[in-house]
Write a protein that binds this DNA or RNA. Structure first.
Lengths: 152, 152
DNA sequence: ATAGCTGCAAATGCTTTGCAAGGCC
DNA sequence: GGCCTTGCAAAGCATTTGCAGCTAT
């Protein structure tokens, strides 16, 4: 029950504490992405200090509610650019809806299907053993674990 | 390299051997689904004896090539009905594309992203350990493992 | 015969491109 | 100032409903 607060704590320490608004700018520059107004705004929302799981739509709602005008398409483009730059990780849990995770480290997820809600599981926690060798000519790229949970 | 043929063998034994065209009818009746021409045709293609991974589009292509006229929407509907009836399992590996698996037993998957190709991993093979307790009020429903592989 | 379910056309909603405007060097 | 880039409108694609028709009883 106190387990998931451990996840959060881990990530706060990984990002450093507090408001890292500058971090958005730094991240963009380091990635060779131009620090446009929209990107800075989105980065500011995403990398505020703790891990976040967003969909294009949820992030668009958020940035709109913050009073900034950004089109949904731009949010999509930006999310993909951030992902390509290694700032985000795309999480596939639901066909027909893309989730993006600000925690790009090795970890897995709980997924509450009914509400479309993700919770991190630290990478060191879960262990997947006895993964068979992939068929000839193929190499393992990544192992994704999704623990689907329901309201009890 | 011979590993995946093991998977197939497992399923042949689970389904019984040879052409089980009748199996489609039996499955439909057991599920309370009316044995319509389209359903029988699709069931015939799906439950021929070995495990299959299909998308709505691939199955539609297949049934069309077989000379049967079925609309893509019907294929979607049928796949979902079969899934609800427990005859199929939906596999989420790719945002924006749904895969369906005729193997409804406990198992996991290799996924070759570049080609959209799935390979079964028997359930007894892989072990996931140390899954933390889900947050309060939630219960684990299923643990999905996707081993993403690439051409070496 | 008929009651209900099925199957498809049209619609829906998420996501991706084409082009005009904008920003950095 | 120039060139590449961005940001959004409009289009694209997989998927889902509403109604006419058919099927098993």
């Amino acid at each position: 029950m106190a387990k998931e607060s451990g996840v959060t704590a881990r990530d706060v320490s990984r990002h450093g504490a507090g408001r890292l608004h500058a971090s958005g700018l730094a991240r963009l520059k380091a990635s060779g992405l131009r620090p446009t107004r929209q990107r800075l705004e989105l980065a500011g929302l995403l990398f505020r200090g703790c891990d976040r799981h967003v969909t294009a739509e949820s992030l668009h709602d958020e940035v709109t509610r913050a009073g900034v005008k950004v089109s949904l398409a731009t949010v999509y483009n930006t999310l993909h650019q951030f992902t390509e730059a290694g700032l985000l990780r795309q999480v596939v849990v639901d066909a027909g809806r893309s989730y993006f995770d600000t925690n790009v480290g090795d970890h897995q997820h709980f997924f509450l299907e009914e509400e479309g809600y993700l919770i991190d599981i630290p990478g060191e926690t879960i262990a997947v053993s006895n993964v068979p060798a992939p068929p000839e000519g193929l190499a393992v790229d990544r192992v994704d674990v999704v623990v689907r949970v329901k309201r009890a």
